[in-house]
Design a protein around this nucleic acid. Structure first.
Lengths: 157, 157
DNA sequence: CCAAATAGCGCACAGCTTGTGCGCAACTGG
DNA sequence: CCAGTTGCGCACAAGCTGTGCGCTATTTGG
């Protein structure tokens, strides 16, 4: 899962498609100095290799009525295999939890939570997260403003 | 920026496109029970309204050689308008900083940082973040495992 | 309560895009 | 030095996109 070699054309294509995947192969070709047909072939290859995992529409959170986002750190009581599984199930079940990471540091898990408003967020914390038998501590930072939000990855080298 | 009314077809289209924006209007139409032409029109409208902000390729971090991700909390000394600006410039300049949020809570900013490895990450923290005159404290949680990583948003109602 | 206006639909079609076959040129290894 | 391989652009068939059109259902206004 690591032995794929990407030349400068591949990196250029990935960089452009990451910002805008709705471009035609002609437009893409112009930007990376390659013919449309070759763009098509390289795109197909990058998809097959798994470098491109898929294509998504980026949606506007406010238009959909989500006004609140937060970074929530969670500490657990025990760290047995099955203990965590039960907690992970909780995370998976709730659509409000957009990202959940097992981390090394002060906390055990870090979540990125999205909600309609503070009430909905508070409900989630107090009625679902804190009552869980394995949760010992929950600390949240409410997002006030997004300074930077790059979708995707930087280009290496 | 909030008065847009979306019917069930719009929500269905958004939900599908968020998962896979490479579908043709025919395929999209099948899934949401609408003709291709109508899908095309609604898509165009949702783009114009700003509900769809754009289209992106999802890339594989490992293929590009990024093995380390972290959530980093930063505290600043002063909170003047211009003080923050200078710090924000630092964040914008570094491609390693993928997301940066101004937050309310224990910290002032929360960052989502991506790096090749621990060395590169440590370099960033010690040679760029901590030396900044306005930074007073930096605390990081290294991501061990991603339990959930929804790209995009849940569908309301 | 009914008529006019509006909004939203599918169909048809012109123009454009996609992806493959092909021939060519540039490297690669024996 | 030469056969094999790789990667390129061109050309073209198949398929997709987006707009004009006519139709129907819903809304508006008198």
């Amino acid at each position: 899962m690591h032995g794929i070699s990407l030349d400068r054309y591949d990196l250029a294509i990935l960089s452009v498609l990451q910002k805008n995947s709705a471009l035609t192969n002609s437009e893409l070709g112009e930007r990376v100095s390659l013919s449309p047909s070759q763009c098509s072939r390289r795109k197909a290859r990058l998809e097959a290799e798994g470098v491109i995992k898929g294509y998504s529409a980026r949606l506007d959170a406010n238009s959909l009525g989500f006004g609140l986002r937060a970074i929530t750190r969670v500490n657990l009581k025990a760290h047995g295999e099955s203990m965590d599984d039960d907690f992970v199930t909780l995370l998976t079940k709730h659509a409000m939890v957009r990202e959940a990471y097992s981390v090394s540091g002060d906390a055990d898990y870090v979540l990125h939570v999205i909600a309609k408003d503070l009430t909905e967020f508070s409900d989630f914390i107090h009625h679902h997260l804190l009552p869980h038998p394995n949760v010992t501590q929950v600390r949240s930072e409410i997002i006030l403003r997004s300074m930077k939000e790059e979708q995707g990855l930087p280009m290496p080298k």
